[in-house]
């Protein structure tokens, strides 16, 4: 019972999918991870940090 609950909800097994462009050949899984990294990095730069508003700055 516990074991079946722990089985994957979305199976990533089965033939892989690849992005092929000239000599670039990368799995969509890796491409997703790398794209997410870039998006996360850019978001971290631009999204306002919550603590900023209330300026409880002490000297």
């Amino acid at each position: 019972m516990a074991e079946s609950l722990l089985a994957a909800l979305v199976s990533l097994n089965g033939p892989g999918h690849y992005f092929h462009w000239h000599w670039i050949d990368i799995s969509y899984a890796n491409l997703t991870v790398i794209a997410l990294m870039v998006v996360t990095f850019v978001a971290a730069l631009f999204v306002p940090f919550p603590g900023r508003r209330h300026k409880k700055e002490t000297k």
């Binding site: 978001a43 971290a44 730069l45 940090f49 603590g51």
Partner: peptide
């Protein structure tokens, strides 16, 4: 020190 970049 007030940016999301610091959480990584």
């Amino acid at each position: 020190v007030a940016s999301w970049i610091y959480v990584f």
